[in-house]
Amino acid sequence: MRQPESARRVGGDTDIAVIGALVADPRRCRILLALDDGRALPASRLAAEAGVSPATASSHLGKLTEGGLLAVEARGRHRYYRLAGPAVAHLIEALQQLAPALPVRSLRQHTRARALREARTCYDHLAGRLGVELMSAMIERGHLTGGDGVFDLAHARRDQPTGYGHDVDYTLTESGAELLADLGLHLPARRRPVRYCIDWSEQRHHLAGALGRGLLDRFAQAGWIRRTDTTRAIHITDTGSQGLHDLFGIDLTPS
């Protein structure tokens, strides 16, 4: 049974083998990856993602919930599951950085892998090439200050090749605040305005924090981007391509 937080703080070293056992099953990994875009999905959908029966999926979901990796909420007669928090999302990103790539045996797999690297969600913000180009553009245009968006492992102090960054203190400038006002974007006061992650596929910084979440939501509201139903990949619409070019100078032609 999952221990309360106060009980877990008492005792010896952390037992990472418990988490290791949870992510050692490929079916549970497929469930975690399906939820890595921050959405809550029903058990039936997650059973399909894992390629297992509803009863087997229920067992896996129970273990992931008991282990603290998933949270569950009831909506009428249905139960919806989501990642327990951003720390779980960063665990998944870190594992993706270390794990070998699956062999690509079809055009469909190749297309899917490329789409994830071009534009995807990282929990509640944009990642992939779109995410890092967006941050780079905001730095170049003076909307952010404090760093250059580059991850240098040789000189990193606390930063790792994936996950939240800590070495650079990015700040939103006056022109950045004006940009947000023009976009009709208001950042919640309860959350740190600007954070960054090291993007596992690009090895550069992408925006996180309230600003990262706000831009993702605003782009979706404006019809610039569209989530896909089956992966974390983000589709950039024609309107979005034009808007990103006009506002940020971003041109995501194939690299």
Rank of each mutant, 00 (worst) to 15 (best):
T171Y: 05
I225T: 15
R79I: 01
L144Y: 14
A113I: 02
L134W: 00
A55Q: 08
P188S: 13
G76Y: 04
G142W: 06
L207Y: 10
T14Q: 03
S6K: 10
H60L: 14
A181F: 01
G209W: 07
D148C: 01
Q3H: 13
W200L: 12
G249H: 01
R45C: 01
G85Y: 06
E5D: 14
L126S: 01
G249T: 02
Y81T: 08
A154D: 13
L185A: 14
G12T: 09
L102F: 07
D159T: 10
Q97I: 00
G209A: 13
A177E: 13
H60A: 03
G149T: 12
A127D: 11
D169E: 12
R232W: 00
A113W: 07
Q96S: 15
R120H: 02
H110Q: 14
L134C: 03
S58E: 06
H186M: 14
G62Y: 07
D15G: 03
H125P: 00
A119F: 10
A57K: 00
A115W: 05
M135P: 05
S59G: 05
S255L: 00
D199L: 07
S6P: 07
D159E: 08
L91W: 11
L180I: 11
A43G: 15
R79K: 12
R82M: 11
L144V: 02
E118S: 06
G67F: 11
A137T: 07
R105G: 15
L130K: 03
S59L: 12
H205C: 04
Y81G: 05
G142Y: 05
D152P: 08
P103L: 08
D169M: 00
G184F: 04
R82D: 00
V168Y: 02
A87Q: 14
L33P: 04
G85D: 07
A7E: 10
I236P: 10
A220P: 01
L83F: 05
G68Y: 06
V18C: 06
A156E: 13
A24K: 07
G11L: 12
Y164A: 15
L98K: 10
A84S: 15
R28H: 09
T65M: 04
Y123N: 08
S53V: 01
G51E: 05
L95H: 08
I225Q: 11
H186F: 11
R192H: 04
I250C: 08
S136L: 02
R226Y: 02
V132S: 06
G131T: 04
S53T: 15
Y80C: 02
D152E: 10
D169S: 09
G149W: 04
L69R: 11
D152K: 13
R114Q: 10
V10W: 12
L172W: 09
H155F: 06
S241H: 15
Q97M: 04
R45K: 14
V194L: 07
T228F: 06
S58G: 15
H186P: 08
L211K: 01
Q203D: 07
F219A: 14
R8K: 08
I16H: 11
P103M: 06
R39H: 05
L244S: 03
I198M: 03
L130Q: 00
A71G: 12
R158A: 15
T173P: 14
L187I: 09
D246W: 09
I92A: 12
R27F: 05
D25I: 03
D199F: 06
